[in-house]
Design a protein around this nucleic acid. Structure first.
Lengths: 227, 227
DNA sequence: TCAATAATTCAACAGTCGTTGAATTGGAGC
DNA sequence: GCTCCAATTCAACGACTGTTGAATTATTGA
């Protein structure tokens, strides 16, 4: 008897594994475990292939992460650019609400992914930090543009450093998306999950009162994001 | 010739390595590399001892982390309790400023440590999450108390959910401490480092305008933290 | 002076990691 | 039908991981 030949598993599969599918798997595992703890073997398992296949499509684990950024961030920056167009004459709080909508739409599909990016900003490797900073610097500039136009139009009180205002608006919004769902039921001792949309609205209303030239003027009604 | 006996290195050292020193080292390494990537060998190297010695003082790597929490968080909670005492009749913004001062004092000595804790909240192991939540839940309750007293005294506008207001105040303050120094020069394209104290003041002033019953009434002058 | 103990290190364990080179296979082009 | 190539896997490398048990020593107590 021939010694029970192992099943022939090598060679091309019926359905080719595309680089995009590997990125999908990597995103899931990165988000779940973090960048360094995530193993290529776990990513491969998630994608249903061999770890070595990853090296057919990517140079390294870090290259997967930057490819992930390349896939996610540019559409966000494009959306922000449209909002920051000075031809947009809507009231500033509405434009800021659109900014939040862009972040919500482009970054909220993958829970954990933003936290991952945030962690790499704080203590990531050199190359990764540089890539992130290039991207997010572009995004921040657009938000800052909206705020500066708001000052020029007399709607935002001057004296407030625009870079701080940018940081406040965006960072707390992302913290709402990332941390509030985790923290609310347990740390804050909340019986029912808070509605994310309510939290986002509450934040913009508070923020707008804080930066408006006339804080007594109410914040205009904020539509739903997807509109 | 006797085969060059290795130097006798075993046995007690002239200066005993205390558990506290191991915690100091662990804090440094955890903060630099994160919880899972930090290796016991790296911690031992930082402490100048053998990795095995860690097991003489602690049960495991995770036990080191919870011990770290046990050392840092309770003093913060005590300070917050004093501020939240209803007998404290100072203006609410001043009390909130004291809250920020407590966080600043008790958590800002070790850059990276807060980020570590934050990361473990989001995706840490079960036991660690529970411990963190117990501690930080206590802290959050005190802050919430100050805000609710502010509402009762007519200084804070009602209708704002206190748990959201708590989350906003504390989270953005911690983001200022953690992220702003990293992000400001690079992502926001700032020529000069922003002054942390200025950023903290700016945040409380914006926040107070956002939550005060009378937003036109100016925020009282905020003293330096250490006073 | 001797035994006990506390504090420390050594050496090794079984496991996982990122990565690589070679082997294998199905399908496309000729 | 043959050849080539793209896609895939296998098996292994060396390095590193958390952890443990035994060995060692300085100090303490009797």
């Amino acid at each position: 008897m021939s010694p029970a030949m192992p099943p022939r598993t090598r060679g091309p599969k019926p359905h080719k594994v595309e680089a995009d599918q590997l990125l999908d798997a990597a995103q899931v595992v990165f988000a779940r475990e973090g960048l360094r703890p995530a193993s290529l073997r776990a990513i491969a398992r998630e994608a249903g292939c061999d770890p070595a296949l990853i090296y057919y499509h990517f140079d390294s684990k870090e290259a997967m992460f930057t490819a992930l950024l390349d896939r996610r961030v540019p559409p966000l920056v494009e959306a922000l650019k449209r909002i920051a167009d000075p031809a947009d004459l809507r009231a500033t709080p509405l434009r800021l609400w659109s900014v939040m909508g862009a972040f919500h739409r482009h970054l909220s599909h993958d829970p954990g992914f933003r936290s991952l990016v945030r962690g790499e900003i704080v203590r990531g490797a050199e190359g990764i930090q540089a890539r992130i900073q290039t991207y997010l610097g572009g995004a921040a500039q657009q938000v800052r543009g909206v705020l500066e136009q708001g000052i020029a139009r007399g709607e935002v009180r001057p004296g407030l450093p625009p870079f701080l205002a940018t940081f406040f608006l965006v960072r707390l919004h992302l913290e709402i998306l990332d941390l509030l769902p985790v923290v609310a039921p347990q740390i804050l001792g909340l019986e029912e999950r808070p509605d994310l949309a309510t939290a986002e609205r509450t934040w913009l209303q508070l923020y707008w009162r804080g930066i408006a030239t006339d804080p007594a003027a109410p914040c205009p009604p904020l539509p739903a994001f997807d509109a």
